[in-house]
Design a protein around this nucleic acid. Sequence first.
DNA 1: CTGAAAGCGCTAACAT
DNA 2: ATGTTAGCGCTTTCAG
Lengths: 347, 347
Amino acid sequence: MPTLVEVARHAGVTPATVSNVLRNRGRVGDATRERVLAAIATLGYTPHLSARALAEGRAPTIALMVSSIANPFYPEFALAVENALRRSGQFLIICNTDGDPQTGRAYLDQIAGTLSAGVLVMNANLDFADLRATERRGAPVVLCMWERPHAEPGLPCVAVDFRLAGELAAAHLLSLGHRRIGVIVGSKPSGIHAARYEGFLDAMRAAALDGTAAPVRYARDTTQGGHDAALELLQTHPDLTALFTTNDLPALGAMQAAADLGLDVPRQLSVVGITDIRLARESRPALTTVAVPTVEAAELAVALLRELIEAPDGAAGVGRESRMCVASAPRLVIRASTGPVASGALR
Amino acid sequence: MPTLVEVARHAGVTPATVSNVLRNRGRVGDATRERVLAAIATLGYTPHLSARALAEGRAPTIALMVSSIANPFYPEFALAVENALRRSGQFLIICNTDGDPQTGRAYLDQIAGTLSAGVLVMNANLDFADLRATERRGAPVVLCMWERPHAEPGLPCVAVDFRLAGELAAAHLLSLGHRRIGVIVGSKPSGIHAARYEGFLDAMRAAALDGTAAPVRYARDTTQGGHDAALELLQTHPDLTALFTTNDLPALGAMQAAADLGLDVPRQLSVVGITDIRLARESRPALTTVAVPTVEAAELAVALLRELIEAPDGAAGVGRESRMCVASAPRLVIRASTGPVASGALR
DNA sequence: CTGAAAGCGCTAACAT
DNA sequence: ATGTTAGCGCTTTCAG
């Protein structure tokens, strides 16, 4: 592969000049520029990105930490991230942590600041201490989907109002006349989906109902998890007419459980999810859900990270941990998995 | 961030020695090694991967070219690739081409050989000429899922016998008594899925049937594509009792079309796919399909690429384009979307 | 407007 | 067993 020096020789200039035309650093005469460009073209020269990274003190890559890229939501997000990065000439390294903080730390230690200029964190079960350490080593970190716009995580983040998402989903069910609603939370009790559950409780309260009386199950954030939880819920509470689920994947699982039980969705049971992953649209019946601004969040996250990376070390200090972008509000998407509560007791 | 030189100073040795203990290049006394290790620990030193890449003349990353990471099959494959790479201390850069050769070329030109040491190609609609050019620039390329074990692509590859997959799927349908089978091919007529369709034709021929008489539709390789094709097929050929689909995603779409038409799968219509993506297991009814060795293919691809990267430039010359690994055979996975052909004419 | 020169952090001969 | 010395390819002052 040709190097910049060869291009320079070919064009009869010095490396510095080639570098200048490459980076549009003004200081080059038109004739010279032409010659350099010609040399670049005939030699088929491409900058050596690793060399450039070293010289600039900044790699052109950023790392996306996820627990597993195979979780159906993450690829949609990763795609949006990659698109945003590509537009700004950066590259995406995918780091699967398998939900294991150790693996996450190993990744951070190895690449943050040396191979990637910054880190995007998408629900990867990382230690906050490790993330802080990463920042201290000079690689900014941003949390991609912080669920509580009204509580600072202590790390730069883009926030999405998932409490509101929960509220909208629940309100939708209530407006259809449902009162006996089962809840499936796709995380541990005080885990990542807690805000969504709070939204449910808020909606119930607003309707003068006691949300805490609604039966709830905590499940893994997977189809299977939702399936099993729904099965249990429906069997122990045969009077339920609707299921509020804190994420689409378990909601889809819940619909399968209903199918397994011979229950018609939405005639006998309504199911609502949160996020609006592609599968939600493609399931039968199509899933009613609360759409979250995935692409917008990805773009905000990339923009914020860029800012932090480019900020002079000093400037980053103050208020760095208080950098929070709030993405636009979630909105209800009514599809086929929810309907009015049956007049007669169907079940 | 501390540098190797600082570690050396701290330990009272020279950079070379630190480098040696880091890379286990023998030639270091035990006492010295201890001191160096101690210095590394107290300073929290981590090698600068970009610097190392430059000095070694080889980046620790490889690029995975895919048309869109959001296609449900790719993340499963990407996960397997990332796992394999992680084990060998390498990192994964995801390159979405959006199915556009231009975008693919831009990616290849930029990073191949400068930021990534090699390229894995997963059905990204790339120009072979561009891939050859990439090889010439010193970055080995391997095709991850070559569909024809018996035809050399002219580029190193791992092959999976998709013709056989098609044959197995079709034979399964035939064994259930189906004779009026519709075909949905998830690519252009002579496109990527051609071998799978040939497998179908072979199975028909083996049963002394005229496969070419079976109605066929070419669709996009998506749920929607399969849905639309199935709808058309079922409406124009109301006598069909089964659908052979060359990929799981369109097969899933076909099942939805059946649902839309009020057809019961598998009682009135059997549907079979190919690949066995996770969704196949999770759909209702669960999809009968022919499983393809995804993880194995990913591991073979990574191993082959590594070999090519490490091969001395000269050695790589001969037989390089004839490097083909064949992954183990696909196998039929019978689930709930296929059943015996109805005795009475149900439709 | 262009050239010369000093690194960026690490590796790899080659000396000692 | 350890030290010396060049680079890897590029960027970036600072001179001219």
